[in-house]
Design a protein around this nucleic acid. Structure first.
Length: 113
DNA sequence: ACAATGACTGAAT
DNA sequence: AATTCAGCCATTG
């Protein structure tokens, strides 16, 4: 059925919830969706995010190291770091500085408890 | 239907 | 501590 589409929709929803000035990781989103092992699928969902009508802040989603692994998938390979820099992040060597400080975990933010 | 790929992560060396 | 290997699972050819 559309359960797989739901997974994508869930990813989009979580990503859309990322506050400005914060970032999260694929694994954190996957973990929130109950699919810790499907971190890669989150990346696929992000790939489809460009086709979604609501603007998905995919630039706020980075890998565990805070590395802009998906910058190459944007309109331009520099758009991602530019957007993040615009939000106040410091990017060095494609990596976000103070990643732990700006890290936004949906599990904590949504207070699953 | 099979094989390869990928915006990842964690464990092992 | 840094680098390498393997697992994960949907999507695509």
């Amino acid at each position: 059925m559309d359960s797989k589409q739901d997974f994508y929709q869930n990813v989009f929803e979580v990503v859309a919830l990322i506050p400005e000035g914060r970032v999260t990781s694929y694994g954190a989103i996957a973990n929130y969706l109950g699919a810790r092992r499907s971190s890669r699928l989150v990346g696929w969902a992000m790939n489809a995010s460009h086709n979604r009508l609501p603007k998905i802040p995919a630039h706020r989603v980075v890998n565990r190291q805070g590395l802009l692994t998906g910058k190459m998938h944007f309109s331009t390979p520099t758009e991602m770091e530019e957007l993040l820099t615009r939000e106040g992040h410091k990017i060095v060597d494609n990596q976000i500085l103070n990643i732990e400080e700006v890290f936004w975990d949906p599990n904590l933010a949504l207070s699953l408890d």
